[in-house]
Design a protein around this nucleic acid. Structure first.
Lengths: 233, 233
DNA sequence: CGGAGGATTGACCGGTATCAATCACCGTGG
DNA sequence: CCACGGTGATTGATACCGGTCAATCCTCCG
C-alpha cells in the first residue's frame, strides 16, 4: 500500500527540483540571462534544435506533444525550480508552452556537456535527473492506465496537494493556473469530463470550487478512499 | 508527417540497444556469469534493492507495474541486446518477468558506478541510455493517448514490424512471443479487445493470423492508413 | 488422443466522447 | 460604478466504444 501511494502521488509531479538545479545554479548559471515569455508563448517546439535547456525562475509551463490527429497529450507542468529540456537527444522531443507569464534562464547544452566531461559527478547528476523524469513519465502512465475519469481527476488533485505540502504551502488549498483543457490533456479525458468530475466531487462535499483557479479540499480522506485506500503519505 | 511517423514507430519499441550494450560488454561483462530464467519467472520485482542491471542475451521479458487494484501496465518488452534496470533509483521501479525462457547477464551497479566515476564518457552513455528510455515511455504514452483500440493494436503491429526491419528480418512476418494478455496490458485494453481487433484486421484482409504466435501483414499501406496517413518510414 | 491453458466470439451494459446550449468570471469602456 | 462582451466553464442529451461475463474454440504437449 505504501508503495502504491508513493506511485500515485508522484504520478503527475514534474521531476523533482533535486540537486541538479542547485548544481546548475552554482556552475552554469553565471552568465545566463533570464528570458521572459507571455502566456501561451512557446519556450521551444518539438523538433527545435536543442542548444539550451531551461531553469524555470517564475511561472508555470506545460510540456506536451501532439498526435497526428491533433490531439494533445500533456506530459506535465513545469514549476519554478524545475529544469526542463534535459535529455541526450539533439532536438527537443516535446513542446514547452507558457501557461502563465514566465521567466526562465537559458542554460547552453554546450556548457552542460563541458561540465559533464570534466566532472563525473555532474554527469551522474544529469543521469539522476533524467532517471527521475523517466519515473515521472511511467508514473503518469500508471495514473492514466485503467483508471476512470473520476479517479484520474482525484489523483491530479491529490498530486497538486502533495506538491503544495512539499513546498510548505497549504495542502488543502489548490491553485490551478492551467485551464480545464490543460488538465484534460494531461489526464487523457475531455475538458467536459474534467468539469463534470470536479462538480461531482463538489456535490459529494469532498472539495469546494472557490473560483475557476482555486479548489479547496474538504475531505482528504474521502478523496484517498476513492483511490481504494484510507490515507496517504 | 515525418516526425509523427517516427514517433508512432518508436512508440512501443524498447530502448535502443545502442552503444551502451557494447560498452558494457567491453568493460563490465568480463566476470559476469549468465543467469537463466524459465517462462513466467521474475528477474526482479518492483521494490527490490537494485544491486544489478541486466543485459538480455536470449529470450524476451516484460517490464510492468501493477496498480492498487491489481491492473497491470506493461511498459515494454526487452529483447536480446537490451539493457534493463537502468536508472539512478536505489530500488527497481518495476517488475521484470520472463515471457520466454530467458538468459541474462548480471551487471553489478557498483561496477557501473565505478566506471561512470572514472570515465565521463561512460557516464554520458548512461545518460543517453536513460534518455532514450524516457523517450520510449513518452512515445508509449502518446500511442495510448486518445487512440482507439484498433489504432493501438495497429500501432503495436507496425512497431513490431519496424523492429523486425531494423534487425534485418522480414517486416511482414511478425512473431508474438507474448500472450494476448501481455499485449493488452501494454496497450491499456482487455485481452478480448486485442483479440477482436486482430480478428477485424484479418476480416479486412490487412493481416493473416497464421498461429497464435505468428501474424502476417498483408496490407501494410492499409494499416498505415488506419493511423491517418498513407505510408510510413 | 485427451486435457489444459490460451484465444476467440457473442450479448449486454456502463462510462465517456461528442455536440450543443447556457452560465460564470473578468477585463474593458462608457 | 455599472453594463457589456468574450473567453472559459458548466451542464445536458445522445451515441458508441470498449469492459465484463460467459460460452465455445483452438493449439500445443504430454
Amino acid at each position: 500500500m505504501h508503495v502504491t501511494v508513493r506511485t500515485a502521488s508522484k504520478a503527475l509531479s514534474s521531476k523533482e527540483p533535486g540537486r541538479i538545479a542547485t548544481l546548475i545554479r552554482e556552475n552554469v548559471l553565471a552568465g545566463a540571462a533570464p528570458a521572459v515569455f507571455a502566456t501561451k508563448q512557446h519556450v521551444f517546439f518539438e523538433g527545435d534544435e536543442k542548444d539550451c535547456v531551461f531553469l524555470i525562475e517564475q511561472g508555470v509551463l506545460a510540456l506536451y506533444r501532439t498526435t497526428a490527429e491533433g490531439k494533445r497529450q500533456v506530459f506535465g507542468f513545469g514549476l519554478p525550480g524545475d529544469v526542463i529540456g534535459l535529455g541526450a537527444a539533439q532536438v527537443h522531443s516535446c513542446n514547452a508552452q507558457a501557461i502563465t507569464s514566465l521567466e526562465v534562464r537559458r542554460l547552453p547544452t554546450s556548457s552542460l556537456n563541458r561540465l559533464a566531461a570534466e566532472d563525473p559527478d555532474f554527469a551522474l547528476k544529469l543521469y539522476q535527473a533524467v532517471s527521475s523524469e523517466l519515473e515521472a513519465a511511467r508514473d503518469l502512465l500508471m495514473a492514466l492506465s485503467r483508471h476512470g475519469a473520476l479517479e484520474r481527476v482525484t489523483i491530479f488533485l491529490l498530486t497538486m496537494s502533495r506538491r503544495n505540502a512539499l513546498n510548505g504551502r497549504n495542502p488543502a488549498l489548490i491553485t490551478l493556473p492551467m485551464m480545464r483543457a490543460d488538465i484534460a490533456d494531461l489526464l487523457g479525458v475531455t475538458m467536459e469530463t474534467v468539469s463534470r468530475c470536479l462538480s461531482k466531487l463538489k456535490k459529494c462535499r469532498m472539495i469546494e470550487i472557490i473560483r475557476y483557479t482555486t479548489v479547496q479540499i474538504i475531505d482528504m480522506n474521502g478523496l484517498n478512499a476513492l483511490l481504494g485506500r484510507a490515507t496517504y503519505h
